[in-house]
Design a protein around this nucleic acid. Structure first.
Lengths: 360, 360
DNA sequence: TATTTTCAAACAAACGTTTGCGCACATTTT
DNA sequence: AAAATGTGCGCAAACGTTTGTTTGAAAATA
């Protein structure tokens, strides 16, 4: 009697589960096993097309799985395998065109290689960045992509990841420390091309509105400038390169000193497109004409402007993002580093390039 | 003899683990338990400040945990609790200022409420959107925030989430279907203010470059326009509102018809800032002056332009993102919907507002 | 002293999946 | 006929944590 009852109950139970009445919870492999009266492992192997499972069983399992809308519980799998298939990305500002383009590159690589992207903006705030790093750690991302904030001056918060064996790749804004993986652009080359371009156009007095001297990027620009002058056998005049805080007022200030220079430049290379726009607006307000501007970034907004730089140095953010993500995922999937063998660090430089728009 | 050996081995083992020599793997609660010779559950409860654990034990556990750099394995916890504390966000384009601002609002709420953000861009491609939805599903996000792509015309791919009991909240670009949660802006109000503003400035013939008639947003703009005319006891002339595909050439085309209109407008409301810039550039090229432009979006690039609309309708993307994220997380954490009780749908409208910049 | 209450800690199950090992049966080879 | 090989599947452990229940001892009450 008891046996009959329990058997009856089992039938009812499977039936209900089959019709998905009793639970709103997602179907599991267990339920499939129970209904089909086979073991869980068989179901698992059947769904994964394991060679040791008969064709008929596979069919039966797959059919029922489809009917029950079975979806493997990723959380269980992630837990079991110790992988989340999530990469974390921390960057300063998505509203900066460079980063919103870079993230597209990152995303594209991630999806292609079966990863998803956990995103966070530091808004150029070092404290927030630390907090985000913490978040990424507790989420146990499989890897981390970082472009550090302008205000970050210490870098210990990234150390934890080494201990946890979670690879970190920096891109664009990289910290000035050793033993890191990074992808960045080299502006020296682009600057060289830019100055060369201006020289070929006949300019002989070329000014440069550079950024704060603390930035690596400023240094690279300067080097490119010098290199171009030297390779054209021209004398390099250091006073033609001025530093600027990149604000509008700062730009106007240095523009004024530039215009009062004993050798007034006929062309100016500016730190970025925004500085270029400020500077050009200023010269127009002074009703000065004929100064050629070359800039960096090649922002899309340039297409909407009335007055634009005649050329721009492109840093290929999409390419940089793509490269960084590729390296990161390679690092995630590399074989375990044997104890003792020191690992190599990826230091990739994406060359910048001068873009000369078609004259209208 | 055997006993001595096994005991010795255990000591060595704990010692090694204590010094973190043997494994590069993260410390677990188990190891702590073994070293302290207490049970796992005690350790777990001690770390979580459970009331039934003695103060001394708590101290011992916490001290050792700190020394071993213990970090709870989130994957295990997520698996156990069936929650990932991740919300998915699918939106068309981060390079559009609206979305990069909105995501900041989403992020801020998410972090405040202890969630992280899994991001994906559809690039306005319906197929890609479907794929991303699939990704989000397999990642089993706790909730989903979506701004649908321009090319999306079917919406079944979102249905799955209902079955999985994963809440979905749409924002800004919402699908034209019933029974969804959404946050969107109402442009009628902002348009009303915009037209009113122009009327107060003395304009009597106000044109409007509207978007495709299929868009809800176009309809709202039109309604706002009409409402303003009526409330000022002015006749509404439908021929002053023209549809445009929002491209530069399309804009120029409709501008020409507008300028050849028997009642040439003295002010024009344009669908967005880009259309405004195209239109203004065109009028300048025709050396027409004196037409006032009002637009939508209030993009940051406006600050860099020489000629800008005299006012802009702001849609508060940050606020919209924030609101949408808040609703989503509320939905995630709401008590289980009892069977039978139909749940309500959140339909939130963020009012738009006319922003008039300080005249320079 | 006998009973109940309180406190501290242990036990064990559970979450869903994968995977190494082993068993039983069938087929082929010696 | 015995042995080797192959096929199809089940058993059980493992991943790290939380949590309901249980146990044991000490303290408080009767």
């Amino acid at each position: 009697m008891r046996i009959v009852f329990s058997k009856l109950w089992m039938v009812i139970e499977s039936l209900c589960q089959y019709l998905n009445i009793m639970s709103d919870k997602p179907t599991t492999i267990k339920e499939i096993a129970k209904i089909l009266k086979i073991s869980v492992s068989t179901v698992s192997r059947a769904l994964n097309d394991h060679s040791s499972i008969g064709l008929t069983t596979k069919m039966r399992v797959k059919k029922l799985a489809a009917e029950l809308n079975y979806e493997p519980n990723q959380k269980a799998i992630q837990f079991l395998q110790g992988k989340s298939h999530i990469i974390g990305v921390i960057l300063p500002e998505l509203s900066e065109s460079f980063f919103s383009t870079a993230i597209s590159g990152i995303e594209d690589v991630a999806y292609k290689r079966n990863y998803t992207v956990l995103l966070a903006q530091s808004h150029d705030d070092a404290d927030r960045e630390k907090l985000l790093v913490e978040k990424m750690k507790t989420q146990r991302v499989d890897g981390l992509l970082v472009s550090v904030s302008k205000t970050t001056s210490t870098y210990e918060h990234f150390e934890v990841f080494k201990k946890l064996n979670i690879p970190v790749v920096f891109f664009d804004r990289i910290p000035p420390i050793k033993d890191i993986h990074y992808v960045a652009s080299n502006l020296e080359n682009g600057t060289y091309e830019a100055v060369n371009f201006l020289l070929k156009k006949g300019h002989r007095t070329i000014g440069m509105i550079n950024g704060p001297t603390t930035l690596v990027a400023s240094h690279e620009r300067k080097e490119g400038y010098i290199k171009a002058m030297i390779s054209n056998r021209l004398k390099f005049d250091p006073s033609l390169i001025v530093s600027c805080d990149l604000s509008e007022s700062g730009t106007i200030e240095v523009m004024n000193t530039m215009l009062n220079h004993r050798r007034k430049p006929t062309a100016i290379v500016t730190f970025n497109d925004y500085v270029a726009l400020f500077a050009m607006r200023h010269t127009r307000s002074l009703e000065l004409e004929g100064i050629d501007f070359v800039s960096y970034a090649n922002l899309p907004i340039i297409n909407y402007m009335d007055y634009t730089p005649i050329a721009s140095v492109e840093q290929f953010p999409y390419k940089q993002g793509k490269k960084a993500a590729d390296i990161l995922i390679d690092l995630i999937n590399r074989p375990k580093n044997e104890t003792g063998t020191e690992q190599a660090y990826f230091n990739v430089v994406v060359e910048s390039e001068l873009i000369i728009p078609n004259p209208k």
